[in-house]
Design a protein around this nucleic acid. Structure first.
Lengths: 211, 211
DNA sequence: TAGATTGTTAATCGATTAACAATC
DNA sequence: TAGATTGTTAATCGATTAACAATC
């Protein structure tokens, strides 16, 4: 089945890395096959979900035996696109921005922050975790020239829309927005809102609901 | 309608703060009422969604006129619980943990980080953004004594399960987990997984889907 | 009144869960 | 063979979208 007609589903994308990490550990323990039941038990979810997800990414198992672990790992790796490298730029190099630049998890998943931008002139020219920081007025040209398609916004909310406009002008197609504010962008540009506090409220509400 | 039988829905919780921020700006421009259509147009969503959400939080509008802005703001404030103060502790004060401790957005939404813990002895006793950092072996007692119910985990993945176990022992009921790994906890404890890279992959997949 | 907007009931859609036949 | 597990089809559930009567 060609990639293009596979369905795209956020819950699936969230679960696959969890399967992957468990499969890696199972493989390192010498196992070669595993049942959906076993994966599900370890992750505390329903086995049917695991079977459905395997089906969605095109992995096939064998009745009575389960799934071949290396195959399943490869299918997840392929579906998640961890083999391709995607380059990112980030605008806003305060404490959150710096933490993102310093985060090691990007590389393993096929992402690389190639430049940072900040409106504080004293930051221009410095390196954070090996990434060069530029003044913000260099952003549009640099992004155009390097054909970067994903931009991270980690600036105060009042500055976020202006940065988003610049990113759109620079040809960015996807914005990962850490500012708690709605951005106006053309329909061709996708915004992934990362409102940390909202996640925390969802946790809090979930706790009250549970009680 | 009492709080307890209102439905709990994550998408709703995500949208309400966006309404709130727009309502605040409309109010500061001297408006006193607003239609769901106007809110929806500004946020690029369907007006029906806005009306449904208003209904869910118990706000009532008037045909032809719309919703009273102060009332709607109050209803959101109440539903989100921004008036109550919830105390948090954080374990792991590296760059991500420090960025969270330094983040200003908690206060406005009724959250406060009251202590940080780290296994690096050189950090014991220091202040980050006014928050005291303690050695990790003080965590269980302090959390028990202060009856803190929410814990943040911002440690490397290989240490996350151990910290989660300690938190459960300390009586924590909700864990906000920034480590990319599944945690095993009793059913009475809720884990909100905050896998940053997964959000980025969802953005990336959305872009490919769009194209 | 006329018409814009709410509130409500029904339809759609997607994801999860259930049931069960196929298969090794 | 017997039985565990897959693969598939159907049912459920919740959220979104649509339709429309009520109302100011």
């Amino acid at each position: 089945m060609p990639q293009s007609i596979r369905t795209f589903s956020a819950p699936l994308i969230r679960r696959l890395p969890e399967y992957h990490s468990y499969l890696e550990s199972a493989l390192s323990q010498g196992l070669t096959t595993i049942s959906s039941t076993a994966i599900a038990a370890h992750l505390n979810i329903d086995p049917i979900v695991v079977r459905k997800d395997c089906e969605a990414i095109g992995a096939v198992g064998r009745p009575r035996i389960g799934f071949d672990i290396p195959n399943l790992i490869a299918a997840i790796y392929e579906y998640m696109g961890w083999g391709n490298l995607d380059e990112l730029v980030i605008v806003g190099c305060g404490s959150l921005g710096s933490a993102l630049i310093g985060y090691n998890g990007f590389k393993k998943r096929g992402f690389k922050i190639i430049a940072g931008f900040d409106n504080d002139p004293s930051k221009a020219g410095i390196l954070i975790n090996g990434v060069s920081i530029f003044p913000i007025n260099k952003m549009v040209n640099l992004v155009k020239r390097l054909h970067v398609e994903i931009g991270i916004i980690a600036v105060p909310p009042q500055a976020a829309q202006e940065i988003a406009d610049m990113m759109v002008e620079a040809g960015i197609k996807g914005i990962w927005n850490f500012s708690p504010c709605a951005l106006k962008v053309p329909k061709t540009v996708i915004v992934q809102q990362e409102d940390l506090i909202t996640s925390l409220v969802i946790l809090q509400k979930g706790m009250k609901h549970e009680r």
